[in-house]
Amino acid sequence: MLSASHKDQNILHIILNAPTTANMLFMTTGGLCYFYPNFYHAGIAIQSHSGNLVPYDKKLGCAGEVTDEFEMQRDMSFLNRTCDDLCPTFWHHVQEKHWRLSVNWNVEDSVTKVFHDIDVEWRLNRECTNSECPHCFMVMSQNFECAGASNRDDVKFLPSEIWYHKPPFVQLIKGIFYGGQCHQPFLVPIPVKDGIDSPPTLDDLDINYWVKQYKLYECHSIALNQLLSRMSSMTGSKETFHGSILVIKQTRHVPNLIVNMTKQDQLVANFLILSALHYHILTDA
């Protein structure tokens, strides 16, 4: 039963980290909601990454005996085909309504209010063990585990790892990379996450190939961005900056749609960054 979540946290993080898909359900005073409704109605429960931590002789999930009523599946091999969009390694967003089913008994206090203006993503597992799936761990283990980029050599090296990713990325978007140890900005390919075949949004980009995400209080441990610091000195400022920046272009006419950047866009990006540095509105990346 859902009452309230901790400040700056969302209850969906708990729901979507349940040990099985059968446990990914919650109720409010206005209704009931559960994820993976097709599996739920078929009496099938798929084990998640948190379920992997539960010993085999222990119950899965906080609902006690509920899993006894479901056919437990450790992975998607029971499909006897490729996982398609059901692959446990694919990220999903709570705004994708086909992943959940809601039942309201009080429309004025609808259970769907929980999803309003919420930016929560989840996936069932880090690895897929379905041998029929092109994203199974035997294939994906051949890929490079990227730690992010910072210098010119990284800009030359990482694209080859992106081009030869297995299975091949369906989509790539071009952005501009201001690496911490680079002497100039570079136009770079940005992979779109596996499983996204529609025009990508910002949430769909696998930006970790270029920039790792850090919390602000950790910025003191991030390397100095020599490129931005040099650009800052051109405005007369002595302020220094840390980390790297990846600039991505969004269309004006279609909200949230990401498109390729060009060399011409790089001139505009340079101008905007110099302006931001001049007015001290650019924070650490």
Rank of each mutant, 00 (worst) to 15 (best):
L79W: 10
Q250I: 04
L2Q: 12
N225L: 03
R81C: 13
Q184C: 08
R252G: 03
H93W: 09
P185Q: 03
Y209Q: 03
P55S: 11
M234Y: 04
P255K: 11
R74Q: 15
D206G: 01
S5L: 03
T262A: 05
S198G: 04
G179V: 10
N80F: 14
T29S: 14
L228R: 03
G236E: 04
V247H: 07
A269G: 01
V211G: 02
L267F: 10
Q142R: 12
M261R: 00
C146G: 13
K97P: 01
Y34M: 08
H220I: 02
N52D: 15
V259T: 10
I44R: 09
D284K: 02
P167R: 11
I46A: 08
S244V: 01
W210I: 02
D119M: 04
T112V: 08
V259G: 01
N38M: 10
G64Q: 11
S232G: 07
M261G: 02
N38S: 14
T240C: 11
V254H: 03
P199M: 05
D203L: 09
L32W: 07
T21C: 05
P200H: 12
H242V: 06
V54N: 09
N38R: 14
W122C: 06
L25H: 09
Y217V: 02
M27H: 00
E69A: 06
L25S: 12
H6W: 09
M72N: 03
E145K: 10
G180S: 15
G64T: 03
M261F: 01
N106I: 09
A63C: 10
N225S: 06
T21F: 00
